[in-house]
């Protein structure tokens, strides 16, 4: 599957740490960070998620000049196509029912500002389960490897996505 470069800089680490509510100064203060065990700024544990900013084919980012499936004048910017019998689930509806079920990380070395990571993604397993709250559940696993300029593994991430038959009820 896709491969792309993910340049890591200090400001992105700071913004990401803020967004998850992490006030540890190792993510924002280089001078403080130089006195810590890692010896400098490092990225927080879930930071590699921000790599999608650099993924040219990432589907959950609006593209300049193209319709976006979120709301504008209407509740969705993608007009429903003429409905074919089995087409009802293929436009915005199916992404609405795609949820993140599980995420796993294995850390090989810390990520630091200045790293240029190479991100490669491949499909893992896929399976189906009958869900209690959301109808039939289709699970798919995606494995993403983040490697540094030497080709060494930095982080291995496994994401499990689930597509549900309907919106998950709030029992």
């Amino acid at each position: 599957m896709a491969e792309f470069k993910f340049p890591v800089d200090a400001s992105q680490i700071m913004l990401f740490a803020r967004a998850v509510g992490d006030k540890n100064p190792i993510y924002s203060d280089a001078e403080y960070a130089s006195g810590t065990e890692p010896g400098g700024t490092i990225a927080p544990p879930t930071f590699v998620q921000a790599g999608c900013q650099y993924d040219p084919s990432f589907p959950l980012r609006p593209r300049i000049g193209e319709p976006w499936f979120g709301s504008g004048k209407e509740a969705t910017g993608i007009k429903p196509k003429e409905k074919k019998d089995d087409d009802s689930d293929k436009s915005s509806g199916s992404s609405a029912r795609m949820l993140h079920a599980e995420q796993q990380y294995v850390y090989h070395k810390p990520i630091r500002p200045g790293d240029e990571l190479t991100v490669s993604t491949r499909r893992g397993n896929a399976w189906t389960k009958e869900g209690r709250r959301g109808g039939a559940l289709n699970f798919t696993e995606t494995i993403t490897e983040y490697r540094d300029a030497n080709g060494d593994l930095v982080v291995t991430a496994t994401s499990v996505g689930v597509t549900t038959g309907k919106a998950v009820s709030q029992d």
């Binding site: 998850v20 992490d22 065990e37 890692p38 544990p45 879930t46 993140h100 599980e102 995420q103 990380y105």
Partner: peptide, 30 residues
Amino acid sequence: AHGMLSMGATGVMLTNWVGDGRLTKYSARF
């Protein structure tokens, strides 16, 4: 919220406890 926001916030507790750069694995089911 994004599941990953909850996982990221939970990670704050982990790194505060185990220390910076000390995690070798971290996984979460949402």
